[in-house]
Design a protein around this nucleic acid. Structure first.
Lengths: 334, 334
DNA sequence: CGGATTGTTTTTAACGTTCAAAACGTCCGT
DNA sequence: ACGGACGTTTTGAACGTTAAAAACAATCCG
């Protein structure tokens, strides 16, 4: 493996000149630069990243904690990771994966990775309602950016990127409205979930804007499972109120709704329009295909990396992105 | 951030002694060791990984190429990544993610990561039938281990870990047999797929062992989609032969089978037993739940890391692991 | 008592890179 | 012709760690 020294010897210049050829080529005379570059090419030289990092104390690695999966399978994680990875590489960086316990128990792991100079900073995801990580990292002056808001108070420590759930729900409502639905229900989570309240709020506002009823049309599920989605839908339909549209807070709940509708002999997309959230792989795989709100993963990843690696000029950056409605059979005009 | 030097000064020993306290504590006198450890703790010292790597030329990072997702969503990737990460961490290592074009076009990326000393080696997955990566890496003397066989010839370059598809199919057949099925079909892929031939072989052998018919009971799907699975099932049922069991090569195809059966008024699990492969999140989420063959991810990951980081003592290691049958409603006794 | 043996600690020299400053030319204006 | 200014290249020195060898200390044995 060739080193700077060997390249320098071959090109008959000093080591520093070769270094400059790579990092500040404008400083070299044109002919020197060309000669050095020829040697670099000839010897197939690649800078040793460790030596560089040691000197500059920047490792160009970004830590990402892979969610421990028993809780709930993160159905769009592969999309997110691919996007994040690609975005990082566009800036010459890479993603370092690690595992850590949730909550404060995980903080020593974050601290350690940073203290050992294995990462420059972190991308957080799977943010929870009272996520302690943000405040902790901020306190320790460890760079990070969050995918998802903490939903605790209005001012959240550190920069974040998130998808506008309220806008997403509103888009779903408007789409169902345009295909003729007039009594649109919302399938949600308990009030304790910030994300849930964001999305239900969008549904409520959009319904009011369009002059649609909302009273008695909210059902809350205890957990995010198909079974619970089906049960909640059953409760909704048994309540005696007419329903011709269902905006579900997640794809999983939406699948539950589809199942319950089918079980009762109703045709999703024909009798009742259904939409989900996140456009997980499930959405296009079920029958009928599930209309869902896709998170703009590439843009999210791009923003995360830009914020994390950009100059942290004073005020923390906050970016709210709009999801995209992917229309499939479950919301075909009734 | 404390350094060895500062700890040494504080403990009133030489730098090397502190280094030894961490890397070869048995060399120190007990009281010295304790004194040094106290200083380490007090100053909250963490070794700088870059400096260490520079000196030892081992970065303790393992490269893993995140599959580009448009081809087919890797439904169990999050499980795999979590297991791989955890296994790596048990040996003090971490996973570095990167993206690369498929086939030989991606090789410069692998080479570059290794040449810049950003990774010690690679874990390959998503191995394709004529995957060029294994031979190429072997040729360059870049350490790697493959999750999945190349299916090209009997001797494959480098070590690998894989799941025994034939054994898995056989388990599925035997399970269906035990619940009373006697005409068990196989839903597969084109013959060009090594993985496909492995699994169909297991089905055929198991059927022969049990004295069950196989002729005319194989259907091949052009692609791995629900739609194709459903079409193939339709062809199978239309062929006039009785079928009371279906072993599908993938969960996706199995879902297609479930859909087609339901469409025809047949009850999966009651009229026809169905099994899938890989136990993706889909399997437990559909109704009825899909019986499927779970890959032992933790064990796979453990083996991969052990092989990659262990001493490459001559002959390449090859490990074939048995999947585990997860029984759900789709194969309830008929 | 002296040499060998063993156990513990220190010294010296890297690993491959970049920073900061110094050195070397070359050109210019007065 | 001389001092200054600029453009280009080289010279130390350092980043934080570990390998190898040297130094030192204690113990043992004949």
């Amino acid at each position: 493996m060739a080193t700077l020294k060997q390249v320098a010897a071959h090109a008959e210049v000093s080591v520093q000149t070769v270094s400059n050829a790579l990092n500040a080529p404008h400083r070299l005379r044109a002919d020197t630069l060309e000669r050095v570059n020829r040697s670099i090419e000839l010897l197939n030289y690649r800078p040793n990243r460790n030596a560089r990092s040691l000197r500059t104390s920047a490792v160009e690695l970004i830590g990402y904690c892979v969610p421990s999966w028993p809780n709930q399978t993160h159905l769009v994680m592969d999309q997110f990771l691919h996007a994040l990875c690609a975005a990082a590489e566009r800036t010459g960086r890479h993603i370092l994966l690690f595992t850590a316990p949730g909550g404060v128990d995980g903080m020593p792991t974050y601290d350690d990775l940073h203290a050992r100079r294995m990462v420059d900073g972190f991308v957080l995801s799977q943010t929870e309602t009272h996520d302690p990580r943000h405040g902790w990292l901020k306190e320790q002056d460890i760079p990070f950016v969050s995918f998802g808001r903490v939903w605790k108070e209005t001012t959240q420590p550190g920069p974040w990127v998130d998808v506008d759930g309220a806008a997403g729900s509103a888009m779903a409502v408007r789409h169902l409205y345009e295909s003729g639905r007039r009594r649109i229900a919302f399938l949600g989570w308990p009030k304790s979930s910030g994300l849930g309240e964001d999305r239900v709020g969008g549904w409520r506002d959009a319904c009011k804007d369009l002059g649609l009823p909302t009273s008695g049309l909210t059902v809350r599920c205890r957990e995010d499972s198909i079974e619970e989605g089906a049960r909640a839908t059953a409760r909704l339909l048994d309540s005696g109120r007419t329903v011709d549209g269902i905006v579900a807070l997640s794809d999983i709940l939406a699948l539950g709704a589809l199942r319950e509708l089918t079980r009762r002999g109703l045709t999703p997309g024909h009798d009742v329009g259904v939409t989900g959230f996140d456009d997980s792989p499930l959405a296009e795989v079920v029958s009928p295909g599930l209309t869902s709100l896709r998170q703009p993963m590439d843009q999210i990843a791009e923003e995360l990396i830009t914020i994390l690696t950009g100059s942290s000029n004073g005020s923390p950056v906050e970016r709210l992105l709009r999801p995209e409605l992917v229309i499939r059979g479950s919301s075909a005009p009734g």
